[in-house]
Design a protein around this nucleic acid. Structure first.
Lengths: 352, 352
DNA sequence: TTGAAAGCGATACCAA
DNA sequence: TTGGTATCGCTTTCAA
């Protein structure tokens, strides 16, 4: 529990000098610095972040606040490996990322407390809803925050998002080009801003074509064994889907693969599948058989942008300079192929 | 950004009185309190936790620090629903739980910084190793911490643990009583203290019997599709296992069920399975077919104990009073039955 | 290059 | 019941 004063007493100098020495101020002489550092080491000194925060306003701690009843819910949307990368990115900039679960009870209250008066320098929230009250609350209190994703209601805040609309429009166009006419769309919750935008992209792609193609949206409550239940439905409908778009993530594709297998349908030939790639370690899109065509968020870039936005917010930059919309990659693999009439065998354009 | 002083100025009283009023001290009169509260409300006052922490030493924040490269690794050991319950328990005691991922780079350094000098009042770590350097580091710095689990090397710290040894000894005895002689044991990492203790319980149960029963331990690196690979091995060995104990969790049992099904073996009759129940929402032991016999940690109790230990540590109680070892329930369900000779059909003692 | 001293915003003790 | 004041540990002018 050594303090600056302890070091100062030991060396017979003032605590101001000790502070400057430890913070590597240029005016302090090399030998003074060395002496101070060695005593600091010896006493096991570590700066008291609380005192530092009180005077300088900075603690170096960032909070990621996730909304949900338990962490499983959160992780369904934002997988652990992403959070690991994010953690790393903050680490590299000497920022400590802590995570806080906000249950529905807290809702806006917690955010205000955390950001306005608490120890963290900035808070990060993710997966906003189309109309997100957390963002409203944070804006009202003048808190420092960054959003991973973007709602549809507010404008003046820092965010990083991908072009969900464009990416899913492109993916859908690709399916239409392959000749698919009945496309099933699986979605957990349309009130998530990202889901809404992806659906818009899908719908616009379809309606921009003159051909009589159509989509059927299936709600998927995330507890139905990786969308298996709705996949069975979609594949056995009166006009069965020849292609499925999984809006939320690759885990949904597991159910489609299983349902297709059970009906004797071959993925990539009889049924095409596209999913959003959440970069889950356990379900790697490239390990699917056949490998899965995906729309992918560039994870490392995303993390770098988020860190940049957080640093910008801390420095007080205008939010207009901290709004990033990235393009998502569309990666064609083996799970998509040209449409073939049901019952008719045909060669697919899959890679071997 | 109103401060105590702002409220005091407004009312023409001292900031000491305002502080007492807001903290509901008995000596402050009812009407003074009312006036103070109304002005506080009006100005949107919220206490500055940083200042409070500096003087009182308390912020009301607790950090759960988990070791692992990413959160997936962590969640494999400590599932999200448990953390949700824990979060709730701290909430109920007006404590904020934040989570921090510690990668191997940080290791002991982070713990020292976080606990000794930082904003949190206490830190919680979980799943300690048999010899855990985090505990060493925390003890050395005199930090306030609580362990979920218990290592085998240190003594004087607060913890909550279940009787892993006793529970798995009981479970193994049960299998032996049913006549099983070749028992396979699946384990991720024997260096985890809980795994070590469970294995000891299993071994002691076996060696306390005169009969010639034996166990075979299979290492399971958690990436092998829910232990399917080692399950195939265990069931097709020269002397195949008639019973499997999954040390780490119910997800391992998925692989056993699959491997058994593939070999035409019936779980609960040809192969008995016991797992530790990690209370994963997605893989509920009662939803297995047949339902899974488990050793179970009482989750709600565990959380309550952990909160109690944290509060005790904050109040400065001696750690000896904050060491809890709970019994784990052994719940017999349909996945365990009397041993039958291979090839011989027999009625099992399963519930219908 | 260094030291003295003024805060940061609360809490807590001692007087009144 | 209230006010004045020291304090928590640090950063940051202002002087020397």
């Amino acid at each position: 529990m050594a303090t600056l004063q302890d070091i100062a007493d030991r060396l017979g100098i003032s605590r101001a000098t000790v502070s400057r020495a430890l913070n590597d101020f240029p005016e302090v002489g090399a030998k003074t610095k060395a002496k101070v550092r060695s005593v600091a080491q010896e006493l096991g000194y570590t700066p008291n972040l609380t005192a530092r925060k009180l005077i300088s306003g900075k603690s170096g701690m960032i909070a990621l606040v996730a909304q949900g009843e338990d962490w499983n819910t959160v992780f369904d949307l934002s997988p652990g490996s992403f959070l690991g990368t994010l953690n790393q990115a903050f680490d590299d900039h000497d920022l400590d990322l802590v995570m806080r679960l906000a249950t529905d009870r807290d809702k806006t209250n917690l955010y205000a407390r955390l950001a306005q008066r608490s120890f963290v320098d900035c808070i990060v929230i993710n997966s906003p809803m189309v109309e997100d009250e957390r963002i409203s609350a944070l804006l009202k209190t003048g808190a420092k925050f960054v959003v991973h994703g973007r709602d549809a209601q507010h404008e003046k805040y820092a965010y990083y998002d991908i072009d969900n609309y464009g990416a899913f429009k492109q993916a859908t166009s690709y399916l239409l080009d392959l000749g698919h006419k009945n496309i099933a769309v699986f979605v957990h919750n349309e009130d998530h801003a990202y889901a809404r935008r992806r659906l818009e992209g899908i719908r616009d792609a379809v309606s921009s074509r003159s051909a009589e193609s159509s989509i059927a949206v299936y709600k998927d409550d995330a507890s139905t064994h990786f969308s298996y239940t709705i996949a069975k439905e979609a594949l056995s409908a009166k006009t069965p889907a020849s292609a499925v778009i999984c809006v939320d993530g690759v885990s949904q594709a597991l159910g489609v693969y299983r349902a297709a297998r059970e009906r004797g349908l071959e993925i990539g030939r009889d049924v095409s599948v596209i999913a959003h790639d959440d970069v889950l370690k356990r379900w790697d899109a490239t390990k699917f058989a056949p490998s899965l065509t995906v729309v992918r968020r560039p994870v490392v870039d995303a993390c770098a942008y988020l860190v940049r936005a957080v640093e910008g917010i801390i420095e007080g930059k205008p939010v207009e300079e901290l709004q990033f919309i990235d393009t998502a990659e569309f990666i064609v693999r083996g799970s998509t192929g040209v449409y073939v009439d049901s019952g008719v065998q045909s060669t697919a354009i899959n890679p071997a």
